[in-house]
Design a protein around this nucleic acid. Sequence first.
DNA 1: CTGATGACTATAG
DNA 2: CCTATAGCCATCA
Length: 120
Amino acid sequence: MAGSGSNKPTKEDRAQAAEERRQRLWQVISAIPPGRVCSYGGVAKLAGIPNGARQTAWSLRYLPRDTKIPWFRVINSAGRIAMPAGSRGYREQRRRLKAEGVTFNKSGRIASRDFWWHGD
DNA sequence: CTGATGACTATAG
DNA sequence: CCTATAGCCATCA
């Protein structure tokens, strides 16, 4: 078998592996129930990627505005929206969450721990 | 290859 | 509450 047995990952192998990680991340995010939120690190862990918080964020960076993925249900571990306060994304995320019943206190943190989702 | 970047996180002061 | 620091890891120049 020509080439079989080669352990050297090709560029295509790495690209496919990265794509599969993104798919798992999106799958987990899509499973977050309406009215609940999850942290970047929590999503990564549920997707089988420990310490992958930054990859969760990276996977959401270039999503189209019409995406079906509920990116707005992902916030940081401090219970805050990760984007710069006052930015366009920040306001949209906060508006969408509010529409589902997720409220924030005066300091910009989610009003209740009950909003946290920890998987099924 | 190296170094910088970032929608992160945990810990310390 | 804040900032600083270290750890993390895919991606980019």
